[in-house]
């Protein structure tokens, strides 16, 4: 939309024409009607992780909105299919709670859908302790979803400890992403129509 004003002469706006300031012309497009704003689908909200296991980038403006009740729709509506944790922590912060509230709303709309709540840990801990830590994180998420009215029988919590990292980097950014719980929808989903 900024294209319309690019042919305004800006050559002398700064220093070159100090003696005789050139009149800044009115944009020539003034007579043309300003085009109505194009309604774009908003970019999906993407908090901490850039890299995501779900193909968020496919949801570009010209594609149709996700099929209601699909995995894409769940991520689109919730903003995120994962929530993140501090080092050796399993409590939910306000950002995580906000995401989980949206996840719970979605899950209450699509009551056929079942989910595996998978807890993950970063690599800065020993294997079995991390399995136990992942189990705690998964249970924190499951408990919160259940407290918001999701039927516990639709949710199975499981821990992968540090065995299924999301981010391969061995640094603070990578570890932060790998401390997460993934709400992985496993059945009862609507699917995209075949192209």
């Amino acid at each position: 939309m900024f294209k319309k004003i690019t042919f305004i002469s800006v050559a002398c706006l700064v220093s070159a024409c100090a003696s005789t300031p050139e009149v800044i012309q009115q944009p020539q497009t003034a007579s043309a009607p300003i085009p109505a704003p194009v309604i774009q689908a908003p970019e999906p909200v993407q908090s901490a992780p850039v890299q995501n296991s779900q193909p968020l980038s496919d949801l570009s403006a010209f594609e149709p909105a996700p099929v209601p009740g699909s995995m894409d729709d769940f991520i689109y509506q919730s903003g995120e299919d994962r929530v993140y944790f501090g080092y050796d922590r399993f409590d939910l912060n306000e950002t995580s709670r906000a995401v989980l509230r949206k996840q719970a709303e979605w899950l209450k709309n699509y009551t056929n859908v079942s989910a595996v709540i998978a807890g993950h840990a970063d690599e800065r801990g020993t294997r079995n302790y991390n399995l136990a830590l992942g189990a705690r994180r998964a249970d924190s998420v499951k408990d919160f979803l259940v407290s918001l009215g999701v039927n516990p029988r639709r949710l199975t919590s499981v821990s992968f400890g540090k065995e299924r990292p999301l981010d391969a980097r061995s640094n603070e950014n990578g570890w932060a992403k790998n401390r997460n719980v993934h709400t992985n929808l496993t059945s009862g989903l609507n699917t995209n129509p075949a192209f």
């Binding site: 399995l131 136990a132 994180r137 249970d139 499951k142």
Partner: peptide, 9 residues
Amino acid sequence: MTLSRRGNS
């Protein structure tokens, strides 16, 4: 062995 039940190991 360890059993994790309702998040508690």
